[in-house]
Nucleic acid binder design. Structure first.
Length: 307
DNA sequence: ATCCAGAATC
DNA sequence: GATTCTGGAT
């Protein structure tokens, strides 16, 4: 066995464990608009927006996005720059995800004749759709997914059943636990538990956690959670300046280097250490990522969002 | 200060 | 394995 494998097993009375959670979820849970649709496109948009972004900040953006591009046909026909601009305007971060979503819509149009596939395997072929999102869309749209494994699920399995901090172990445990053919309610319920009862600072009694009687952590009082990778500081980071570039180009359409520079850094000086060369480096990276186009004219260089 | 329904690319 | 983005809540 590899390092980190401890003694662990799911309870014998699995059916009771399952029933307790589903009953708890169905009695009361948070209301999100994407829980009231089974449209795979609407579900996908909510899932992509939710990656690394707090749910409370996704709701308005989700409504606005679907208002602007109601179907994959509409989104596929949009220009990439419009979609990236929307992402930036709504402060959704990681605007590569806007590019992926746009491309996924084009794949659905071209590869699937506008109709979403309904298996996790096929959904995984869409750009920006990994294991988590494939199972989420398959579950919430078609009730046809495997267990989702995200940081919430890992934290719950780690605390309640002592599943070791290992991706393969989490996936196996999550699927063992999930009742066959009930992925929609089950995956909603598990993530609801991780969100309202078993967050970083747990709230077992107040939230009426249905798994207290089976929970290792509740018995021992040790609510340690798996390590989450720590992020580098955002303030002053390259990411921050990339984000400002995208926002400025979305707002103004097209800008020359020396018009753009001062909007990115107040200390921009064309020949300074943060000047044209530095800015050009940022723009070339963004161009490689498919976000920005840089055009060298005679004497002046201009940048704009791609397409 | 740290965290948040991940995934692709190099 | 490191990088990509944002701001409100805690």
């Amino acid at each position: 066995m590899t390092d980190g494998d401890g003694e662990w097993a799911l309870p014998e009375d699995t059916e009771d464990v399952r029933a307790a959670l589903v009953e708890w979820y169905e009695a009361d849970h948070r209301s999100f608009p994407w829980r009231e649709t089974t449209d795979p496109y609407e579900i996908l948009v909510s899932e992509v927006m939710s990656q690394q972004t707090q749910l409370s900040r996704v709701e308005d953006a989700w409504h606005a996005f679907l208002d602007q591009w109601p179907t994959t046909t509409d989104l596929a026909a949009a220009e990439r720059g419009e979609v990236v601009g929307f992402w930036s305007d709504h402060s959704l971060g990681y605007n590569n995800r806007a590019k992926y979503l746009h491309e996924a819509a084009q794949q659905v149009e071209s590869d699937y004749d506008g109709e979403f596939p309904d298996t996790p395997e096929e959904l995984s072929e869409l750009m920006g759709v990994g294991p988590y999102t494939a199972n989420a869309v398959a579950s919430f749209a078609f009730d046809n997914g495997d267990a989702v494994v995200d940081t919430n699920v890992k934290r719950v399995l780690y605390r309640v059943f002592g599943v070791p901090d290992d991706d393969a172990a989490f996936e196996a445990a999550a699927n063992d636990l999930m009742p066959e053919g009930e992925s929609r309610v089950w995956n909603n319920a598990v993530m609801e538990l991780g969100g309202v009862a078993c967050g970083k600072s747990p709230d077992c009694d107040a939230a009426g956690c249905p798994w207290r009687e089976w929970c290792d952590a509740y018995q021992t009082g040790d609510f340690t959670a798996p390590d989450v990778p720590t992020q580098p500081d955002f303030e002053g980071s390259r990411r921050q300046f990339r984000g400002r570039v995208v926002r400025a180009l979305s707002e103004h359409g097209e800008l020359a280097l020396d018009e753009l520079g001062p909007r990115i850094r107040v200390d921009y000086a064309p020949d300074g250490s943060y000047g044209r060369d530095w800015l050009r480096g940022l723009l070339d990276d963004l161009a490689d990522d498919g976000m920005v186009e840089v055009a060298d004219g005679s004497g002046s260089t201009v940048a704009r969002l791609q397409e």
